[in-house]
Simulated assay, not measured.
Amino acid sequence: MIEAVKFWNEPNNKSHWDFEIDSDWQLYANMVKMAAAAVKAEKPDVLRVLGGISPIDPYFITRLKDFGTFNDLNAVAVHGFPLDWNHWQLEHWPEKIAEIEAVTHLPVWVTEVGVSTFGAEEVQEFGLRRTAELLCGRVDRVFWYSLYDLPRAWEATTRHREAEGSSYYRHFYMGLLREDGTPKLALKHFSDYTPEFGICQWFHFEDHRLDNAVDWLKKLGVKRLRTGLSWADYLRPDAEKWFDRMMQKLDGFDLTITFCFTPEAKGIQPHHTSPPQKIEEFSDFCVEMMRRYA
């Protein structure tokens, strides 16, 4: 069921990893090395992937390579949103992939790419089709972000939230489906690109959308799904019950699972983006998840 695991999400983005604490990424590099070696020993057939980077930065990849981070990895991953947040254009996707290929021998996966409907649904419709033209056959894995819009009652994982203006609100309009589950214009095209195109859909703790999401993924012909198992959530009451239900429901998909988010009590600072006080505890969590679900 688990095809691949990713170690963290966007480690070079301060919304996901506090690099004021880990200013040279040495803690992150050591944490990934330890976790990748442990997962390899536990389940050697499961692919091991660097947490998808955003922005796409070859210098960051080179730094991690110099630390020996890639010794037990099978791929590196990138995230890109050129029609919403990046300072490069949609047509530059092949160049951005080539920049990373130039500094690593590992395959490059695109584990998040998407277009918001903040301005107009037609923008997402165009963006999906053009992105597929640029990336299908160019990289081994592509995951479209996302199936559902983020509910407006929730918070997006960013640093400054409403102070970011429209950049913040775009996070709530990335789905092919609206918050209420009704389709947007781009949805009718998505099955043209499956099963090569996967979907990245994060499920929150006890997410009410899980059952309907699985129904939609099957309708769309999705085979590859990326989601996450949160280390922070695993310390909640009844966490194993929720994890078991989610993973059982997702049986039948080729899963890429992201392990991320530090429990507040275990961080150098009490925040989910903080490096952990003991990096071996993250490794222990990864191994426990492999034993339970791989």
Score class of each variant (00 low, 15 high):
Cys286Met: 10
Trp202His: 12
Asp211Glu: 15
Ser230Arg: 09
Leu225Trp: 01
Asp211Cys: 00
Glu280Gln: 15
Gly267Pro: 00
Phe197Val: 09
Tyr234Met: 01
Phe253Thr: 04
Phe259Ala: 02
Ala232Cys: 08
Leu255Tyr: 02
Phe285Asp: 03
Asp192Phe: 12
Lys188Pro: 00
Phe282Ile: 11
Cys260Ala: 13
Val287Leu: 03
Arg245Tyr: 13
Glu288Ser: 14
His271Val: 05
Arg226Tyr: 02
His272Cys: 06
Glu240Arg: 10
Asn212Glu: 14
Leu235Cys: 12
Ala239His: 14
Gly267Tyr: 02
Leu210Gln: 08
Phe282Thr: 02
Phe203Ile: 11
Cys286Ile: 07
Thr258Asp: 09
Ile268Ser: 01
Pro276Ile: 07
Gly198Ala: 10
Gln201Thr: 03
Lys249Leu: 06
Leu210Gly: 06
Val287Glu: 07
Trp202Asn: 02
Thr258Pro: 02
Ile199Arg: 08
Gly228Met: 12
His204Gln: 11
Gly198Phe: 06
Thr262Phe: 05
Lys241Tyr: 12
Asp238Met: 12
Glu280Gly: 09
Lys241Leu: 14
Pro263Lys: 04
Asp251Leu: 03
Pro195Arg: 07
Ala232Tyr: 11
Gly198Ile: 12
Tyr234Trp: 13
Phe190Thr: 05
Thr227Asp: 08
Phe190Leu: 08
Ser283Gly: 14
Arg209Tyr: 12
Gly252Gln: 09
Pro263Arg: 07
Leu255His: 02
Glu281Asn: 11
Asp238Tyr: 13
Leu225Cys: 14
Gly198Trp: 03
Glu196Lys: 11
Lys278Thr: 07
Pro237Ala: 14
Pro263Ile: 07
Met290Trp: 01
Leu225Phe: 05
Gly198Met: 10
Leu250Val: 06
